[in-house]
């Protein structure tokens, strides 16, 4: 039983850690499917985390916080969109700029406003998304085997965690089954064809970039209002890049993206769990080895040693209308 409850605890913390990754990864999915490469996921999450913590602290409302986070992330997404779509600038360069701008501005403004070395004052109560306990979770928890699954894995997460699942379902459905989704995918593969069909490439790509902003807004708000209680300097700590890795790992598809994020969240949970633990027969497993796995697996996958990850054909290329 001891092992079983440990397993449940690891799965539970893996679920929590994967939520921001899922949002960010779906953001990347939308953007890159439309042909706009986005390495600025990290920066957009970071501004969203800061804006949501600041707004939630000022209004004592987590929902307003989320709204502020989404607006901030959309703002940064539009900078990227303007550079990538309207100005036909280099999308990688723009992404790097977004990340640096976000890291610098959040720390600078956070320090100037709150005087706490860049962090926002701790949030509590309604200013955070509290875990939702599903009906009967405590009673059912007593049932062996199935009980903990219901009480800890299905129940007991913040509203935003369930939103991540909804976002995956919606993204998969819209991209796969709707006309808008088809056009988004088409504009990422062959924008000229979409243009010839009389559909605006610019408008499609902007909508995808804005959707990416909304999703990054959710990701950052979850970090500041769900996982932690407030904003910390550079609290995304590379999660945007892990999400990017997960996106490649999922070969730019929605459901695999969620599973890849869950896998990477789980690895993170295992790494935290194994810190300083002696495993019988093996000794101490270096935590860093587990932390490095997502990056290593992505490199190996990209290099085509296990399967092949092929990005959308027109991703990274600005579209120039023919005259």
């Amino acid at each position: 039983m001891e092992i079983y409850s440990t397993l449940i605890a690891i799965l539970e913390s893996g679920l929590r850690l994967c939520v921001p990754l899922v949002f960010a990864c779906l953001a990347g999915l939308w953007s890159e499917r439309s042909g706009v490469v986005d390495i600025g996921l990290e920066g957009k999450m970071l501004v969203a985390a800061f804006a949501s913590a600041a707004a939630a602290g000022a209004t004592n409302s987590a929902v307003i916080g989320l709204g502020a986070g989404i607006i901030a992330a959309i703002g940064f997404a539009l900078i990227h969109g303007f550079a990538a779509i309207s100005q036909r600038g280099n999308q990688i360069v723009s992404g790097v700029a977004i990340n640096m701008l976000a890291a610098g501005l959040t720390a600078l403004v956070g320090n100037a406003w709150y005087n706490q070395g860049g962090r926002t004052p701790p949030l509590e109560g309604d200013a955070r998304f509290q875990p939702l306990t599903w009906p009967g979770a405590e009673a059912i928890d007593q049932i062996p085997i199935i009980g903990p699954i219901y009480a800890h894995l299905i129940s007991g997460h913040s509203a935003l965690a369930y939103c991540a699942l909804v976002a995956t379902i919606l993204s998969a459905f819209v991209l796969r089954r709707t006309r808008f989704g088809l056009r988004i995918r088409a504009v990422g593969e062959n924008p000229a064809a979409v243009d010839t069909a009389g559909v605006s490439v610019t408008r499609l790509r902007y909508s995808a970039v804005i959707i990416a902003g909304v999703l990054c807004g959710f990701a950052g708000s979850y970090l500041a209002l769900g996982q932690a209680a407030g904003f910390l300097t550079n609290m995304t700590a590379g999660k945007g890049f892990i999400a990017l890795a997960a996106l490649i790992f999922a070969k730019w598809r929605a459901w695999p993206a969620m599973w890849a994020c869950f896998l990477f969240g789980l690895l993170d949970a295992i790494a935290i769990r194994l810190q300083g633990v002696m495993v019988p027969g093996i000794g101490q497993i270096p935590v860093q080895a587990i932390q490095a796995l997502p990056y290593l697996m992505t490199v190996i996958l990209l290099a085509g040693f296990i399967g092949k990850a092929i990005p959308p054909k027109a991703s990274g290329l600005p579209y120039v209308k023919e005259r």
Partner: peptide
């Protein structure tokens, strides 16, 4: 704070590069 410099670098990358 010195984070200002990181923000300025971001702006330089934006205006001298992408924009």
């Amino acid at each position: 704070t010195r984070d200002m410099i990181v923000a300025i670098s971001g702006l330089v990358i934006l205006f001298a590069g992408a924009l």
